[in-house]
């Protein structure tokens, strides 16, 4: 047996190098802890303050006329959000899917690149700017519809990019099999490619809905003012929305309003986190299915 004339222990220089490495590891750990703590603090404070202010009335009654702090609920803010985001989805979903089909299936590579770039850049435009853009067109004519258009502009790039990604995951063999049967391209697209990618398209849309439901800034100039009634659901009128309700309630000094703000925030947070989490889980499973 060979006599050990050397050591494999940590010594000298290596000790210092290992120390640096461990310190950096500890710093990274601390950073992760900080992020989780921040999330925990935000979520827990919203949940604890919000849950205590929740009641059946809060979901089934409308805001008392005259903006009274006491009593009532946010029924029509929920309805308004649903109407605004619903119409936005009706606009953005077909548009986004069509854009994705063009970019991934039909466009020449150079045009596809330009389109992707444009979508990504549009995705980076501040939402308040998009709100102002729609405002310059509709001017003083506020309506839920105008808000929907602004949200749709935000949603289209999200849906288009998510759809494109899943369309690319559909195996080329599936397209070829259909084309080889003499099926035309458009039938192949709608009968083979899109159904195959449907799960991915839906989860991408769900993520976009979660994002749109949390937007406030683009609604400010479009469907915030001139609400004549707190119990309205007509998309041609300016409507209440969850986010705008949180914003206006939070601005009030009256604790009754602040309680409403917390309750509304809690409701919205549950919706947004639950939908985006579910969509992400579904997306991960879907990717695995198509990829593997």
């Amino acid at each position: 047996m060979a006599e050990p004339v050397f050591s494999l222990r940590t010594s000298g220089r290596l000790r210092r190098r290992q120390l640096v490495s461990r310190m950096m590891g500890a710093l990274a750990f601390a950073a992760a802890l900080l992020a989780v703590a921040a999330l925990a603090i935000v979520v827990i404070s919203v949940a604890s303050k919000g849950a205590s202010a929740l009641s059946i009335d809060f979901f089934t009654k409308s805001q008392p006329q005259g903006f009274q702090p006491a009593g009532g609920g946010i029924l029509f803010a929920i309805v308004g959000s649903a109407v605004i985001v619903g119409i936005a989805t009706l606009i953005a979903l077909p548009l986004g899917v069509l854009v994705a089909i063009y970019v991934s299936e039909l466009a020449p590579p150079r045009l596809a690149r330009v389109a992707r770039l444009a979508l990504d850049i549009t995705n980076g435009i501040p939402t308040i700017v998009i709100g102002i853009f729609v405002f310059t067109i509709v001017a003083a004519h506020q309506s839920a519809l105008a808000g929907s258009v602004a949200l749709a502009i935000i949603m289209v790039p999200l849906i288009a990019r998510a759809t494109e990604e899943v369309l690319l995951l559909v195996p080329p063999a599936q397209r070829e099999a259909s084309l080889a049967l003499g099926v035309s391209r458009w039938r192949t697209t709608f009968s083979v490619v899109v159904p195959s990618a449907l799960g991915g398209i839906l989860t991408g849309t769900t993520l976009a809905i979660a994002r749109a439901a949390g937007e406030t800034a683009p609604l400010l100039f479009l469907t915030a003012l001139g609400t004549t009634s707190y119990a309205d659901a007509n998309p041609f009128h300016p409507l209440q929305s969850m986010t705008f309700a949180i914003f206006t309630y939070s601005d009030q000094a009256d604790p009754a309003f602040q309680a409403k703000a917390w309750a509304a925030a809690f409701t919205l947070m549950c919706f947004v986190l639950a939908t985006s989490l579910a969509a992400k889980l579904a997306m991960a499973r879907y990717r695995k299915k198509l990829g593997g």
């Binding site: 047996m1 494999l8 940590t10």
Partner: peptide, 16 residues
């Protein structure tokens, strides 16, 4: 063992 030293011994540094 590597040259007589237990490679998985308690004070052996994997980096070394």
């Amino acid at each position: 063992r590597y040259r007589g030293i237990d490679l998985y011994g308690p004070r052996v540094d994997a980096v070394e």
